[in-house]
Design a protein around this nucleic acid. Structure first.
Length: 818
RNA sequence: GCCCGGAUGGCGGAAUUGGCAGACGCAGGGGGCUUAAACCCCCCGGGACUUAGGUCCUUGUGGGUUCAAAUCCCACUCCGGGCACCA
């Protein structure tokens, strides 16, 4: 077949044409309505893997579909080009991370091109480019000025494998580094933080307005972890109730149970430990604090069960303001210094963990809520009538909580309050391949921002890459030593770099105005495109990146950098499933990658794209074993033979007969169904609709000589509705047939008149079981439908008596109940 | 432990509002084309019973609502994900 389907050839041709024609370049003042589609910009790890292919296939078909629908579509691409792998490679090979990174960007870029995904490459943004770094640093300084960036000493997460501190979000539930898997230790270090907790409530509230997967919103809500309760202070005293002058604050969600407080507990790291401990208990308490400090979170968790060893009595007491009685004050490692006030009141009767601790330490248990009659458990945390609770006796939970808070506020020792699980974002990294923090430390002036005109602060190239636990910048004398921008005396530069999530927290804004060298972006450019209409990426970013980007958006709007009305960056979010192979996660580390390149070489990009779309719903995980690349490739060849005339023996001009009209109606139904499927992200059914329609066309051309106009209309329409998913083959065939560019055609619209069916298959049931299927006119009346159903030969035998009831849903169904 | 999802043929999946379960594809079977094979084209594929026509069963399990349930409700089993000393 001299002119057979040769995907490699036509795909190269069209990819070149889209690039040279700038088909998908779009300006900010484009008069068409604007639409912003964005795929999460990738970390450049070399040639594209299947996850990329899947992601960019979804993104690209939206770009092409929206374009055919008359929109000016902003579709930019860039690279999240700072990060550890490049630096680790530098330590291993001595090559500069920039060289390594630039090379991988080129590999990734060229394999993205081979998928046929189109972007406005003029707008490319790379985290490590000096222009981008300049504005990342500028934003850091804006945050500093506004008090959103601050320096603080805190016990931080240290990963020895990565030789850097990590954000809370980068530590897994079992206390391991989510990148290297090493055990994360606690270290006290002075570090830079972003005050994301200032936005905790807004980040929580604004989730409601987003068209995001419920799963992702739930994950963010859990992560923010709002809990309502009360905070109050209790005076420290002796066993006899004699006050010592100190007091401790506690947070509780259950102030209503306060009468049942039989002891209190502080975190071992609590600053008052030294002050309140009694002399006879000091040695034991200090030993306990030492052990707790040395233990990692993993060890703390694994110590479960040995509650006797997990707490120690301080010798001190606190006065329960509800009962006025002294209760013993303990230290326990299960109380966290980082949450609430770092101290709790313990109510064993209504909290299982307090119950267990009370049992282990022989502390009293007093129920303040009567458990249900059939209660067989220990601590009871449900609702019920209060007992042993003074004036709260007889109240229910909600009423008692309100009453307890009123009591605390009246006595001016506490108040109703809200606590969040969310912590401030630690952004310092002791690494080289990241954006330097633009700060100078001066003995006289303190923390001094690098002046804007000196930005960007860039790292020198002549550094030594060694895994020392400190950034190579720290060891580079010329970089480290500078003069204070304020007093011009010798000073030291900050040598830490920013978490790479800082880079990815605003790149989508820079895409709107990537050439701006006076500001990170202009407000008008933001107005023109933001918020992103459709954001697409992996569900693994559900918390980290998406939370940080939302925080940046709100902060930048409040600082007047972005328009004040822009509260959320991503209106719609779509998270695609993971790629697996035989049940396992497909990943480099598992060594089970299926290389897209090999498929691109043989079956081609269109078949690969179609296979990804056809395999199942986009949000579901995909097992590559279930991907039918052969079926999709075969299907495209069928389309090719049909559209090139290879499969059609002859055609004729004639007035349309019944079969021709049927095909024309099917063509309109094709448009209708596919359009609905595009809008509801049901790409797998759209592909099956193409296949079904193609099968119908084969039957049509084989049954009799087809009518030329009917066949052309059918084929041209098929090519148009397939164009966003299989852009190369449709462009080639459409051009050959019509001389026009399919991607510049307006999306076809189904004629409602042609969607009307003349006859439909009516189902006749007896007692809900299908007994006959009868073709009836679409407009059949209920009475006629009933008559036809009752007259059916196949139905008659089941009508043993007079029908009790007949349900008619003409023209679909008649159900006869006997 | 808590909070979300999910379970449909040998496999991936479809069924948009409670109304024909299994679209479409893969794998399999049969036929055509071919000297032959591949490609391609056509047909058949949930299970049991039945000479046929057909009958019965079937959407993880058990119950319920309804003329009618993959779809709604209750209980349970299993799988996936998130959170988890959070006071």
């Amino acid at each position: 077949m001299a002119d057979g389907y040769n995907p490699t050839e036509i795909e190269r041709k069209w990819q070149q044409r889209w690039a040279t024609d700038g088909t998908y370049e779009v300006d900010n003042d484009d008069p068409r309505p604007h639409w912003y589609t964005l795929c999460m910009y990738p970390y450049p790890s070399g040639a594209a893997h299947m996850g990329h292919v899947r992601n960019y296939t979804f993104g690209d078909l939206i770009v092409r579909y929206r374009t055919m629908n008359g929109y000016a579509v902003l579709s930019p691409m860039g690279f999240d080009s700072f990060g550890l792998p490049a630096e680790n490679a530098a330590i291993k090979t001595g090559r500069h991370p920039r060289e390594f990174t630039d090379e991988r960007i080129e590999q990734l870029r060229s394999s993205i091109l081979r998928i046929g995904a189109v972007y406005d490459w003029r707008r490319k943004v790379e985290s490590h480019s000096p222009e981008y770094m300049k504005w990342t640093q500028w934003i850091f300084l804006k945050f500093l000025e506004a008090g959103l960036a601050y320096r603080s000493t805190a016990p931080v997460n240290w990963c020895s494998g990565c030789a850097t501190v990590l954000a809370n979000e980068q530590v897994t539930a079992d206390g391991l580094c989510d990148r290297s898997g090493d055990v994360v230790e606690k270290r006290d270090l002075e570090q830079w933080f972003f005050a994301i907790t200032n936005y905790a409530q807004q980040l929580l509230d604004d989730l409601d307005q987003l068209d995001w997967p419920e799963r992702v919103k739930t994950m963010q809500r859990n992560w923010i972890g709002r809990s309502e309760g009360a905070q109050f202070s209790m005076p420290v005293c002796t066993a006899d109730g004699e006050l010592t002058g100190e007091s401790i604050d506690v947070f509780t969600t259950r102030p209503d149970t306060s009468f049942g407080m039989t002891y209190a507990v502080m975190a071992p790291e609590h600053p008052l430990v030294d002050v309140i401990v009694t002399n006879d208990r000091r040695a034991e308490v200090e030993a306990f604090v030492q052990t707790a400090r040395a233990a990692s979170d993993v060890e703390r968790l694994s110590a479960e069960g040995a509650l006797e060893k997990r707490g120690v009595f301080t010798g001190a007491y606190v006065r329960n303001p509800f009962t006025e009685q002294p209760v013993p004050l303990y230290l326990a490692d299960y109380v966290l210094i980082t949450y609430g006030t770092g101290a709790i009141m313990a109510v064993p009767a209504e909290d299982q963990r307090d119950w267990d601790f009370a049992q282990a330490h022989n502390l009293p248990i007093v129920r303040t809520i009567a458990p249900p009659e059939d209660w067989e458990g220990e601590a009871y945390s449900g609702d019920g009538v209060h007992i042993n609770s003074g004036w709260m006796d007889g109240m229910g939970k909600a009423e008692a909580i309100a009453s307890a808070i009123a009591f605390l506020e009246e006595k001016e020792i506490g108040k109703g309050t809200v606590n969040y699980r969310l912590r401030d974002w630690l952004v310092s990294r002791q690494r080289f391949w990241g954006c330097p923090i633009p700060i100078v430390y001066c003995d006289d002036c303190g923390i001094v921002p690098v002046p804007v005109e000196q930005l960007p602060v860039t790292a020198p190239d002549d550094v030594e890459f060694r895994p020392t636990g400190e950034s190579p910048l720290r060891l580079h004398e010329e970089f480290l030593h500078t003069t204070c921008p304020r007093c011009e005396k010798p000073a030291l530069r900050e040598t830490d770099t920013m978490d790479t999530f800082v880079d990815s927290s605003w790149y989508f804004l820079r895409f709107c105005d990537p050439w701006n060298d006076a500001e990170p972006f202009s407000q008008s450019a933001i107005d023109s495109w933001m918020p992103v209409d459709q954001y697409i990426g992996g569900v693994e970013h559900a918390i980290l990146h998406l939370m940080y980007a939302r925080f940046f958006t709100k902060a930048l709007a409040d600082l007047g950098v972005a328009p004040a009305s822009m509260r959320e960056p991503f209106t719609r979010l779509f998270t695609q499933g993971m790629i697996r192979l035989g049940g396992d996660k497909m990943s480099k580390s598992k060594g089970n990658l299926v290389a897209p390149e090999e498929i691109l070489d043989v079956e081609g990009a269109d078949a690969l794209r179609l296979a990804h779309l056809f395999v199942g719903p986009p949000q579901d995980d995909v097992d590559w074993e279930g991907v039918g690349i052969e079926g999709c490739s075969r299907f495209l060849q069928r389309v090719w033979r049909l559209a090139t005339g290879e499969a059609v023996a002859e055609q004729e001009d004639r007035a349309p007969n019944a079969d021709d009209i049927e095909i024309e109606k099917k063509t309109h139904r094709l448009i209708d169904r596919v359009t609905t499927d595009y809008e509801r992200w049901s790409y797998n059914t759209a592909v099956s609709t193409y296949m079904e329609f193609t099968n119908d066309l084969y039957k049509y051309i084989q049954k009799a000589t087809p009518r030329a106009a009917t066949l052309s209309f059918a084929i041209d329409t098929l090519l148009m509705v397939m164009a966003p998913m299989a852009p190369h083959i449709t462009a080639e065939l459409y051009e050959r047939r019509t001389g026009k560019d399919v991607h510049r055609q307006a999306w076809p619209i189904a004629d409602p008149e042609m969607l009307r069916l003349e006859s439909v298959t009516m189902v006749v049931q007896v007692n809900g079981k299908v007994r006959d299927r009868i073709d009836v006119a679409a407009e059949i009346s209920d009475a006629d439908a009933e008559a036809v159903a009752l007259a059916s030969d196949k139905v008659q035998p089941f009508l043993t008596g007079a029908p009790k009831k007949i349900i008619v849903r003409a023209p679909q169904l008649v159900n006869i109940v006997v």
